[in-house]
Design a protein around this nucleic acid. Sequence first.
DNA 1: CTTCAGCGTCTTTGATCATATCCTGAGCAA
DNA 2: TTGCTCAGGATATGATCAAAGACGCTGAAG
Lengths: 224, 224
Amino acid sequence: MKEITDPTADGKVPTHVVTYRRLRDMILFGQLAPGQSVTIQGLTSLLNAGMTPVREAIRRLTAEGALEFLGNRRVVVPQLTQSQLDELAHARLSIEPKLAKIAAQYIDDDDIIILKERDLEIDQAIATGDIHRYLLNNYQFHFTLYERAGAPILLSLARMLWLRSGPSLRVVCGRFGTANLPDRHSDTLAALRARDGDQAAAAIAADIEQGIEQVRQSLVVDSI
Amino acid sequence: MKEITDPTADGKVPTHVVTYRRLRDMILFGQLAPGQSVTIQGLTSLLNAGMTPVREAIRRLTAEGALEFLGNRRVVVPQLTQSQLDELAHARLSIEPKLAKIAAQYIDDDDIIILKERDLEIDQAIATGDIHRYLLNNYQFHFTLYERAGAPILLSLARMLWLRSGPSLRVVCGRFGTANLPDRHSDTLAALRARDGDQAAAAIAADIEQGIEQVRQSLVVDSI
DNA sequence: CTTCAGCGTCTTTGATCATATCCTGAGCAA
DNA sequence: TTGCTCAGGATATGATCAAAGACGCTGAAG
C-alpha cells in the first residue's frame, strides 16, 4: 500500500532531481535575474532541501551553463555579452531548426493539436501580459516539438541553450512587456500540418532570430 | 611563503574540481569503455576522494552527457547508437568549424608553433601505436585552437560533444589500431598560417567527418 | 535423486544529513 | 594604507538510512 496522504512525498523521484528541476525552472522562467548571486544555504531554506541535493543541482546547472562559477566560491546567474549572444544565435540556429525538421517527419495529428493548444495559451498570455505563462508555454511549444524528433543529444543541447538564454529573455519581457512579442508559431504549425520539414525548420529559425534580436536590442540599451 | 614540498597539495584547486578533471580525462582518453558501469564508492577508493566530490563530479559529467543515468541508480558510460552518431556529427560540424573560423582571426605565430608541436606528437603517437598519447594530443590540438576563438559558449559545447564521442573513439583505436588514422591537421595548419578562416573551417570539418566515419564503421561491425 | 522455479535474506551501493574545517571578504584599528 | 580579526558561507567527511541486485534456500516436479 502506497502512502498517498503526504503531498510532500517524493513518490519515486529523488530529492536532488526535484531540487534540480525547481532550480532549473526558476532560471528558465525568470525567477532569477542575470547577475543575481546564488548561495547554497539560501537555496536550502528556500527549497526545503538538504545541502547535498542543492550542491548537486548547482553543479549540474553550472555544467549546463545556466549558472556560473565565479572562481572564488561565488555562484551567479550569468549575464550575456553581445558576443556570447552571437554564439548562442549560431548554436541555436544550428540545432533547433534541425530538430524541427526531423520532428516534422514523425509528428502526428494529436501532437499538432497539443501544439495548437500551447499556441493559444501563448496568445492569451501575450494578450493579458502574463510573462511567466508566456515563457512557460513558449518553452513547452518548442520542446514538445523537439522531443518528437527522437534525437536525445540534439535535444539536450537545445535544453542547454535555452537555459543560457532564459534569464535574459525574462529581462527583455519585463522591460518591453509582452505586447511586441509577435507569434511566429502559426507558420510552424502550418508547416507541420503539411509535414514539410524544411519549412518547419525555416519557421523555427525565424522564431529564434527574432527572439535573439529582441535580446540584442535589450543589451544595446544596457550598454548605453 | 607557499608550501612547495608536498606534491599532493591542491594548491588552490578544490577537491571536487580535481576529481571532476580526473574522471573526465578517464572518459576522454579511454580508461573507461562504453557500457561500463561507474560506482560512487569505486571512485572514492580509486581517486582517494570523499563521497561528496565524487558525487558532484558524476553529476557534472552526466549533465555533460559523458555519463548516463540509468533510472535505477546506476551510472554507466553511454554507448552510441547509429542515430546518436548522426546527431553528434551534425552538432560537431555545426560548432567546431565555426570555432576554427573565428580562431583563425585571432591566432598568432606562437600559437601555430604550439599547434605544430602537437601535430608532431600526434604523428609520433601514430607511428608508435600509442593510443593514449594520440588521443591526448589530438584533443589538445583541437582545443588549443578552439580556445583562441574566445567563444566560451561554443567552446563548452565542443567540449561536451568530445566527451560524448571520447569512449567510442577509444574503442575504434583499440580495434583498428592507430595505423589508419590519417593526419588531416597539416591542412588545418596551412590554412591557419594563411589566416584563412574558411579554409581552416573546411579542414576541421573534414577531420571531423573522417573521425565520425571511423566510429560509424566500428558501430556497423558491432551490429553484425 | 536431480533440477529448477520461487522467494526471502543479505550485501552492496546510493541518498541524505549533520557537522567539522577552511576560505573569503569585509570591517576595524594602527 | 596596511595588517588583523571575525563572521558568513563553502567545502569535505563520515554516519545513517533506504533501495536494488545477488545469493542461497526450500520445495515441488520430473
